[in-house]
Design a binder for these strands. Structure first.
Lengths: 202, 202
DNA sequence: GCCTTAAGTTTACACTGCGTAAAGCAATCT
DNA sequence: AGATTGCTTTACGCAGTGTAAACTTAAGGC
């Protein structure tokens, strides 16, 4: 009912998802399905026909955004870095642009996940993937001998991941007035000092 | 109507706030005022008499928790540390116990702040205070010459603050299975390496 | 003892947003 | 022509918030 078998015209579906994304970025979690319908140029019931309920609309939105953002290319660029310091810097560049793009949706999903089973799994899926990316990165650092002795790969990966969550990004850039550059520079330096061995920090 | 002039019996007020806290830790942001009333042994209308509406109940809860937690003592213990490394470690101990105590409420407030003016100011007030505590701490490090040259006091304070927000704590301890000790140890080491000058990391 | 005020209860109701149900309409397939 | 698909329209049930008004109970003033 929810995942594979899409009801109706894919174009209509897409328009609804786009409308949802736009309204979330304006009104956060208190978006009304009626407004989404209006914005998509569709009746409210159509949303129910396509997605079943509010929750599954948001779940679909997560997938939709992942698909439309096409992470693969950016990740390849990170992996192409020829030293650990540069890899961290490129990761933070990616985080910066990515966070800005998904923040309003992330905010809603983050907070809804603890009240909603389906949303929770969708969001945690995403986060697991994110964690995996960081783990690979840290593993590479370790393989090069760049990871400081203090850290196991797992511990460093978890910290790298946790510290670059949307929350801290939001606080620094949205509340404390850091520019994108400041965030990238600051966090990169922070992580390089914390994770890499003292010999080659950059 | 909301802040200074408290309506009714302070004891009743306290019971309502306690009930709110307990129910939030169970049901998160979808607590129902009816349930709060039941739990507090009071009619639903009494809540409205005391707090006006749902929002101002939550605002009052923020103040209530701050008062009941009595931060002062713990902060004194942090300041009594005789080197920067130890100060960071003690800060993380404080964060650990504190985060666990307020997490469920923090989660609700964090997410609601972007939809609700009154809640937003209440929560940001709290966060400003938190930031100030970290800034003082970093200032002390700088005064001792322990802060790494890379950092200005402001940048280091912002990062210290942002990285120790409830979000990362929640992710590490709740989702990635870190124990309290692991969080304290891991984050302390992380911050010490990142912020302190290379000569004396501990 | 009587009056007043404060604190809280009870009942009732309006409003909003979610979700469901059913009938109808237009286009397309066969 | 008949059936299916995609969507609309109208209608309704339900839960939770917030408001209003009338009633109860207890404490204080004098």
């Amino acid at each position: 009912m929810s995942s594979g078998d899409a009801y109706g015209d894919p174009e209509t579906r897409r328009r609804i998802l786009e409308a949802t994304r736009e309204l979330i970025s304006k009104h956060g979690s208190d978006l009304r399905l009626g407004d989404v319908a209006d914005r998509a140029g569709v009746s409210r019931q159509t949303i129910y026909l396509h997605f079943g309920d509010r929750t599954h609309l948001l779940v679909a939105l997560v997938r939709h955004m992942d698909e439309s953002l096409d992470l693969g290319e950016s990740l390849a660029h990170v992996r192409a870095a020829d030293n650990s310091s540069e890899a961290i810097a490129r990761t933070m560049e990616l985080h910066s642009s990515f966070s800005a793009a998904i923040d309003s949706v992330a905010l809603v999903l983050e907070s809804a996940q603890y009240e909603d089973e389906a949303l929770s799994t969708a969001w945690r899926d995403r986060m697991r993937f994110r964690l995996g990316v960081h783990r690979d990165l840290v593993q590479r650092m370790a393989d090069c001998g760049d990871l400081a002795d203090t850290w196991t790969v797992d511990a460093a990966a978890d910290l790298f991941y946790a510290v670059t969550l949307p929350g801290p990004w939001r606080e620094l850039t949205r509340e404390l007035g850091w520019s994108d550059e400041q965030y990238i520079e600051g966090m990169s330096g922070f992580l390089q000092r914390a994770l890499l061995s003292d010999t080659d920090e950059g």
